[in-house]
Each structure stands twice: as C-alpha cells, then as structure tokens.
Amino acid sequence: MLSPLLSVQAIHTFIGQFHILEGVSVEVPAGSIVALLGRNGAGKTTTLKSILGLTPPRQGKVLFDGQEIQGRRSFEIAALGIGFVPEHRAIFRDLSVEENLKIAERNKGDLERKADFIFGLFPDLKRLIKLPGTNLSGGQQQMLAVARALVPDNKLLLIDEPSEGLAPVIIESMMEAIRQLSADSTVLLVEQNFLVASRLAETYVIIEEGRSVKSGSMKDLVDDKETIYRYLGAA
C-alpha cells in the first residue's frame, strides 16, 4: 500500500447552520485515482471544498503530504500543490483560452513547459487559443477547466464531475486525458456517472448523507451489485 498523499480524517463541515458533513474520511494514496461516489446531495462536492478550505471543516483533520491543512486559507492550500477542477465547467469566460491557462501559472514559464503535454491531451485548445472562454462549447470548456489545473506542478488534482453534461464522445476523450494525467499526478475524482468512475479509479469511497460509509477496491465494487444499488441507485 502506498503512503497516502491526502488523508481526510472524520471531518465535519457546516454550511451556515446546516451540518453537511458528519464524519467523512478519505485516503488518497500517491499516484492513484480515487473516486468519491454517492447520490446527489450526499456531500461529495462539499468534501472537495472542505479539503480546499472553501468550506472549512469544524472538526477532523485534513493531512496533505504529511502536513495538516485544515484551517488554512484556500489560496495557501492551493499553493501547496492542489489543483481543483470545479463542476459546471468553471472557467473564466471573459478571458481567452490562453489567458485561462496563463493565469494558472504558479511559476513563470509553467505553461510553455507543459504546453506539449496539455495540447497533446486537448488538441482542440491549441486551435482555439485566442478565443474567449465564452465562445467555447461545453466540452471544450470542460477540457479547458481540466487543462488549467495541469499548468502548475500540482501533486494532487481534485476533479468534480468531469463528465457532467458532456456528449459520449467527449466523455471518452476526457477519460483518456484523466488516465494520462494520472501518470504524473494523484487524482481524487467526484463522478456521478458510475461507468466513468469505475473505468478510471482504482479505489472508491462512498458518501451517504454526509458520512463515508464504504470504501475499497473498484474491482470489488463493480461486482458488488447490491452495494451499487443501495448507495448509488444503479444496478
């Protein structure tokens, strides 16, 4: 077993007066893809936001690369080497494709250094480099959101619903991209589409009503129809 790059230990998060996470634990070994599964509203996105300090946990610990990061400010957490690909194709629509990528540089020249890798994964982006983000299609915007997280040297990528609302052919290329980028990076993936998650991730954690209720190897889960039906509503 690889040592965990990220260890979320029984975190409790509140949004206003609502107790959203009531004890979520996730271990993400270095170099792996871990899928965070669960129904709508289970607390998957809040878990990612809690790791990043956007909705800071009130209890529990978040350890990244051996250091406690809960309670730190979100930009400090991001600067440690955590990239975030939010849901809903969260790009900066008024900036061009190039500016969207450039703005993610943590060190001067990051983009030039990674250009071949990024445009190898997403050739469309190279063609559209000068176009404003708002002019891109949904799939292209999602590619740009993922590409942006690849510009700096992130040790961990948190990817939220990458296949949401995309055409099957785009989903395939997105999956291929995530598979390729996981060779250099560790990924914590939130994905509603179980088929996508099962083809990408090696391990999984299921969240139900704000609690992590089950975890293990994805291979085992694929054969465990009862668990899939019970927690994910799919057979």
Binding site: L52, L54, R73, S74, F75, A78, A79, F84, P86, A90, F92, R93, D94, L95, E99, K102, I103, A104, R106, R148, P152
Partner: peptide, 18 residues
C-alpha cells in the same frame, strides 16, 4: 487578468493560489 478573474469568480481565483 487576475482582477478580471476575481470579478468572474473570486473563489475560483483563490483556488489557483491567488
């Protein structure tokens, strides 16, 4: 450009480490 990013979504800009 970061100022424009802040206008569009400040949290997103923070998530890039700003």
């Amino acid at each position: 450009r970061v100022c424009i990013a802040i206008r569009e979504n400040e949290n997103r800009a923070r998530m890039l480490g700003y």
